[in-house]
C-alpha cells in the first residue's frame, strides 16, 4: 500500500501514553531517517517498549501522533502492520511449532503465496543459520536460535521498517555479536530502516547511526553516539610517571590539554584535540625526558552521556559520580 504521507519512515510528534495517572511515555518527538539504524536507549521502565508498542500499533497513544512507513498508527493501523517487521522482546515464539512451520505461518499471515512462502522461508532459514534446525520444535532452540528465528519471522515480507525490541537481551556474547552482524547486513545490503531498543550501551554504540536516550518517558538526549559523547567532555589521558616528576609532566602537557585531579604519581589531562592528541602528548613527554610507566586513554561513553543527562548511571545503579 502506498504511503498516504511522504515522510521519514518513523515520525512521532508529542507522543503520549498514560496509564491512569502515570505517563509512561510523556510527549516524545522522534524522526528516523530512511535507511537509518536508530537506537532507543534507556533503563528498564523508561518507556522504550511502550513507545515501540505504540509505533507498531499494539497500543493506542493517548496523545500526540505517529506516522510509520507513511501511515498514521491509529487511523491506518492495518497499513502500518503490512509495512513493518516486528521482533518484540516479550513476544514468544511458539515452542510447540518448528521453525519452518512458524515461517510458513508468517508467510500466510502476510498474504504470501504457498510456493513463494516456502522459498522465502528456506532463504531466511539459510540466512539466519537455522536450516539444519528448521524442522525441530522451537522449544528445543537456544536463546540465540530463537532470536535469529524471531528476526527471520520479522523479515518474511521484506519490510522497509524493522522494529527490534531488545533483540539481544539474555543472549550470550557470541550470539549477540552474530545478531549485530545480521542487523548491520540487513541495513547495509537492503537499506532497511531499523528502530532498535536496547538497554545495552555497547549495542547502541555498535549498531546505531543515531540514538535517543529515554528516561521517565521523556527523551533526554538525541544524536549520533560520537556527537553525544563529544558533548559530554574531552577524552582523558592518564599517564603514570615517576614520583616527583608530576609537575614537570604537567608543564610539558600544558599545551595538549587541561588538567584533571588525580592521585600522586599520575597526571590526568583532558585532551583539547580529542583522542588524536594522545600522540602529541607522548611526544612532548618524551621531549621533556619524562619516563612513562603506564598510559591509558578514557573516552566518554554513552553511559557518561546518560549520567550527564539524568544524574544516574545506566550501567549498574545509583547516582553518577559527580567527579
Amino acid at each position: 500500500m502506498e504511503p498516504t504521507v511522504r515522510t521519514a519512515p518513523i515520525v512521532a510528534e508529542g507522543l503520549v501514553r498514560a496509564f491512569g495517572d502515570v505517563r509512561a511515555v510523556d510527549g516524545i518527538d522522534l524522526e528516523v531517517a530512511d535507511g537509518e539504524v536508530f537506537g532507543f536507549l534507556g533503563p528498564n521502565g523508561a518507556g522504550k517498549s511502550t513507545t515501540v508498542r505504540m509505533l507498531t500499533t499494539l497500543l493506542r497513544p493517548t496523545g500526540g501522533r505517529a506516522i510509520v512507513a507513511g501511515h498514521d498508527v491509529v487511523r491506518e493501523a492495518a497499513a502500518v502492520r503490512f509495512s513493518i517487521g516486528v521482533a518484540l522482546q516479550d513476544a514468544s515464539i511458539d515452542p510447540l511449532m518448528t521453525g519452518r512451520e512458524l515461517l510458513h505461518l508468517q508467510a500466510t499471515l502476510y498474504g504470501i503465496g504457498r510456493r513463494a512462502g516456502r522459498e522465502r522461508s528456506d532463504e531466511l532459514l539459510e540466512r539466519v543459520g537455522l536450516t539444519e534446525a528448521a524442522d525441530r520444535l522451537v522449544g528445543g532452540y537456544s536463546g540465540g536460535m530463537r532470536r535469529r528465528l524471531d528476526l527471520a519471522l520479522a523479515l518474511m515480507h521484506e519490510p522497509s521498517v524493522l522494529f527490534l525490541d531488545e533483540p539481544t537481551t539474555g543472549l550470550d556474547p557470541m550470539s549477540r555479536v552474530n545478531l549485530w552482524d545480521e542487523v548491520r547486513r540487513l541495513n547495509s545490503e537492503h537499506g532497511t530502516t531499523v528502530f532498535l531498543t536496547t538497554q545495552y550501551l555497547e549495542e547502541a554504540d555498535e549498531l546505531a547511526h543515531r540514538v535517543a536516550i529515554i528516561d521517565h518517558g521523556r527523551i533526554v538526549r538525541e544524536g549520533a553516539p560520537s556527537t553525544l559523547k563529544a558533548q559530554v567532555g574531552l577524552p582523558t589521558l592518564l599517564v603514570d610517571v615517576d614520583p616527583g616528576t608530576e609537575d614537570a609532566a604537567r608543564s610539558a602537557l600544558s599545551t595538549v590539554g587541561e588538567f584533571r585531579p588525580t592521585r600522586a604519581g599520575r597526571v590526568a589531562v583532558g585532551l583539547f584535540e580529542g583522542a588524536s592528541g594522545a600522540a602529541e602528548a607522548v611526544r612532548v613527554l618524551d621531549a621533556a625526558g619524562i619516563t612513562i610507566h603506564h598510559m591509558e586513554l578514557n573516552t566518554p561513553t554513552l553511559d557518561d552521556v546518560f549520567a550527564e543527562a539524568t544524574g544516574r548511571r545506566l550501567e549498574g545503579s545509583g547516582e553518577a559520580d559527580p567527579t
Binding site: 507498531t56 500499533t57 499494539l58 492495518a78 502492520r81 503490512f82 513493518i84 516486528v86 518484540l88 516479550d90 513476544a91 514468544s92 515464539i93 511458539d94 508468517q106 499471515l109 502476510y110 498474504g111 519471522l153
Partner: peptide
C-alpha cells in the same frame, strides 16, 4: 500470556 497474541496483532491478520 506468552506474547504470541501480540505477534499476531502486529501482523495484518
Amino acid at each position: 500470556q506468552g506474547g504470541f497474541f501480540d505477534r499476531l496483532v502486529a501482523s495484518p491478520v
